[in-house]
Amino acid sequence: MNQILLITDGHSNVGESPALAASRALAQDIVVNVIGVVDEGEAGRIGAEEIESIARAGGGMSRIVQPHMLTQTVQMMTQQTVVGTIRMTVNKELRNLLGVESVAELPPPKRAEVVRMMEELSETTRLRVALLIDASASMRPKLAAVEEAIRDLALSLQSRQGESAVAVFHFPGEDPHVPCVLDLPWTDRVDGLGKLFRNIRMQGTTPTGPALQRVVEYFRETCGNIKEKTEFALPPHGREDPDVMESGDVG
């Protein structure tokens, strides 16, 4: 499962539309989430509409938060995206196999079994999150909060049973042909995270769309054919499972 998390505080102003780039990512099964980070009194500055439209096109969610809420928001979005993606896959299978619209329609014992399997998948599925950080001048004072949020996310991913990795990019790059710069290639370790954004020099533009496009290419270069299907199989009927609540156990 692949995700891009864009953290920004302003409007894009160069290159293709970021929403278009996000829709291309989604077409490659990469979900794009967006966080707008603002200081108090700055709320009007941010392009709320742009942030929403990028997330919508990228099949993800968007939030505008203050720096102290960044860590929690990054956690929440990443986790909800995993759970949501698995739910969608499972509900689709339930429609095909059993003709019900969602888990909620299953009788309690069956529901218990399917939910257990969904949790298993959330924990074990392979997960890659690429963070794309807007490092323009107005973001500078917020980069410490961004670094802490990345460290915290890496810690949570490292605690999973499934294979997990984060990568970090910032944008813009130093010259107009480089929309974004790779700060940290895929890693599953927290310890290796030093200071991420130490010597950032860049031009004054905000090429959000081209930067997103570049991150999608990075996925393709490093992960090969990334269109993968989540493995899914409904448990066979009548299987005795010690963790499944039998209706006779309650009431």
């Binding site: 218990a112 939910v115 010690p242 963790d243």
Partner: peptide
Amino acid sequence: DAADLQGETNVLASLER
């Protein structure tokens, strides 16, 4: 949410056993 609450019910049910 049904799936969410079921996760919790599963924990309680397994403790009963």
